[in-house]
């Protein structure tokens, strides 16, 4: 095959980028492979129009679309904490502003909070802008051992720590719906890397829904529980904020390739290649994702050379 004789080939059924790269790192660390190419491509018919997460969870009652699971989580959240509609709106607006600085973005129309608030609900408490759209594109990440990484045209980025936590399948526990299982991943990666959230320069995290961003900020310790909405409204995740997040526009505005672009952007940012949207002096990037109806949580710490 074009001169490549792979020792291992795998197709991961729900291969959000994080699961793939951690698996690749294991193959290298175990000595099975020297170098692993992680590749992803998609060209969906409904690109930029269809909602991501199309899936029927319950055919009797019409529980459809992964966004609905996130919406059930936000309903729970609203019953525990004081919220305003601008909490989620500020996420959408911030990432759109970032996307407008990224020449590869899928969505670049200007978006204001008023624009957001004027759009109708799709699955209450979510509006259309709270759920990411499917987009077309491709990505590749090459994983190799650190001692082989210097021999390439571009500076390597190192994996500093990896963590993962699957939540038990008990229906609708808050480990699922409010992503509390993330706290276990946080404990794993921060301990392994010897850092805390305050040391992270750049957060690249799942924004398949706006609400997922708030859960991520709180569960990883970037702000206090219940404080995520205010944190975002006050500019905490903007490029010049306390923890710049998804400077490429994320899944909501940059484009949705099942989480792969978060890692691509982490690498580009740590190499200082991002022009107008570059997070100044970024040395430590954290990737965090969720999958499978919020039952699978993962994070990887990336460190610049």
């Amino acid at each position: 095959m074009v001169g490549i004789e792979p020792r291992v080939t795998s197709y991961l059924d729900y291969a959000t980028g994080g699961f793939t790269t951690q698996y690749a790192a294991m193959l290298v660390a175990a000595g099975v492979c020297d170098t692993v190419a992680c590749v992803f491509g998609a060209n969906p018919r409904q690109a930029t129009v269809g909602d991501s997460g199309a899936y029927v969870y319950d055919p009797t009652y019409g529980l459809v679309n992964a966004g609905a699971i996130a919406a059930l989580g936000w309903t729970r959240y609203m019953s525990k904490y004081e919220t305003v509609e601008e909490d989620l709106g500020a996420v959408a607006v911030t990432f759109r502003r970032h996307a407008r600085l990224n020449p590869n973005s899928a969505f670049t129309e200007p978006l204001t909070l008023d624009d957001y608030l004027a759009t109708p609900y799709t699955v209450w408490p979510f509006r259309e802008l709270d759920i990411c759209k499917v987009t077309a594109g491709g990505a590749a990440l090459i994983i190799t051992a650190a001692d082989r990484a210097g021999d390439h045209p571009k500076a390597p980025v190192y994996i500093g720590a990896a963590g993962r936590q699957q939540a038990p399948l008990e229906l609708a526990g808050d480990e699922h719906l409010m992503c509390y299982a993330m706290t276990s991943v946080a404990e794993q990666v921060y301990r392994e890397a010897g850092i805390g959230p305050g040391d992270v320069d750049l957060l690249m995290a799942t924004d398949s829904s706006t609400a997922a961003v708030i859960h991520t900020l709180e569960n990883y310790g970037f702000c206090e529980p219940g404080g995520g909405g205010r944190f975002v409204r006050e500019g905490g995740i903007a490029l010049d904020g306390e923890i710049p997040m998804n400077p490429d526009g994320g899944q909501l505005s940059g484009g949705y390739l099942l989480g792969w672009l978060h890692q691509v952007e982490a690498v580009r940012q740590l190499r200082g290649e991002c022009g107008e949207r570059q997070v100044a002096g970024a040395r430590i990037a954290q990737y965090a994702t969720t999958g499978r109806w919020r039952t699978d949580f993962l994070s990887t710490i990336y460190v610049a050379e």
Binding site: V64, Y121, V123, E128
Partner: peptide
């Protein structure tokens, strides 16, 4: 414990909105 309202169809098999889950 939690609930949502489908106010616009998200899936061709469930077009009759509004409905709650």
């Amino acid at each position: 414990h939690s609930f949502i309202w489908y106010l616009r169809p998200l899936d061709p098999a469930f077009l009759a909105t509004p409905y709650n889950v």
